[in-house]
Nucleic acid binder design. Structure first.
Length: 278
DNA sequence: AACAATGTTCAGTC
DNA sequence: GGACTGAACATTGT
């Protein structure tokens, strides 16, 4: 589920509901999600501190932490990646649900509302001194939590990169344009659904070699990326994109009526309109 | 039961 | 080094 817009919502939820609360207990016993940490390592590093800020670059988040007691020296940063199915679940003192939170479109906009929510899917939990908590809720366990994450391999954030930089980086290789959009070291934050939505909006074939795109096409792609990312953020997730519901056999392009094509591009299942996307 | 899945990473190959 | 494929990761949903 999470691509840039969902991760930004999760970051904003942490910022508005989890900062400044003292960390009492930490459940870091899922050694897969917390690799390469040993159980208790993250707990020992964070106990007694507070989250002081929440940041995001692409799909990666990290929080800065306070020093212990009166110490000026800050603690380690806490890196959180939602993987393919992760959500943030933040509760208030006494375990009350957080209003707003990482609210998404769909029946269970707040993960806490999901009647099938099972505590075993909380893969990492901070318990605050006030009785509330912050948890990584992740059925598939592809999310990841660690301290002081290395983000040096990430390109600039897709929503903050300026047009000249975007054009320069994207067109630097002959790989299919969709593969370039998905490459987190080129631009960070675009996932499979957002890439298909963006290419459809820009009327570009996902297979086009990136270095053969004209200046006008690259500009169009940049505008489409900004537009679809912003729309997904406002509407509650990338699955609210205009073309996302048409990722099925037998569906037709809502603009021109041509049957949608499916193939693997850039290693991912890709749907596009063969008529309009050239 | 088989297969695909919104993400990342690594090994192997050309 | 770059690009591509396939697999792996762990689990759920169809």
């Amino acid at each position: 589920m999470p691509e840039l817009p969902e991760v930004e919502r999760a970051r904003a939820a942490i910022e508005s509901a989890a900062l400044g609360r003292r960390i009492d207990e930490v459940d870091d016993t899922d050694t897969w999600v917390c690799r390469p940490h040993a159980p208790g390592e993250i707990a020992d590093a964070l106990r007694g501190r507070e989250l002081t800020s929440a940041h995001r670059r692409g799909k990666s988040m990290w929080c800065e932490t306070s020093g212990l007691e009166r110490s000026r020296t800050p603690g380690p940063s806490l890196g959180i990646h939602l993987g393919m199915s992760g959500r943030m679940v933040i509760t208030q003192p006494g375990g009350q649900p957080t209003e707003g939170g990482d609210r998404l479109a769909g029946p269970y906009a707040n993960a806490l509302d999901d009647p099938r929510r099972n505590p075993v899917w909380d893969r990492f939990t901070l318990t605050f001194a006030d009785g509330g908590s912050l948890a990584l809720f992740d059925k598939r366990r592809l999310g990841r939590v660690r301290t002081d994450p290395d983000l040096s391999h990430l390109g600039p954030d897709a929503q903050r990169v300026d047009r000249p930089e975007f054009v320069r980086r994207l067109s630097r290789s002959a790989a299919p344009v969709k593969a370039r959009l998905l490459d987190q070291s080129v631009i960070a934050g675009v996932g499979n659904l957002l890439a298909d939505e963006t290419l459809w909006q820009a009327k570009l074939s996902p297979r086009r070699p990136a270095d053969e795109l004209t200046r006008a096409e690259l500009n169009r792609l940049y505008r489409s990326l900004q537009k679809s990312t912003e729309a997904a953020g406002e509407h509650g997730g990338v699955h609210t994109g205009e073309i996302i519901g048409f990722r099925k056999t037998g569906r037709h392009c809502p603009r021109c009526g041509t049957e949608m094509t499916v193939a693997t591009v850039g290693g991912r299942t890709t749907w596009w309109c063969p008529q309009e996307q050239r």
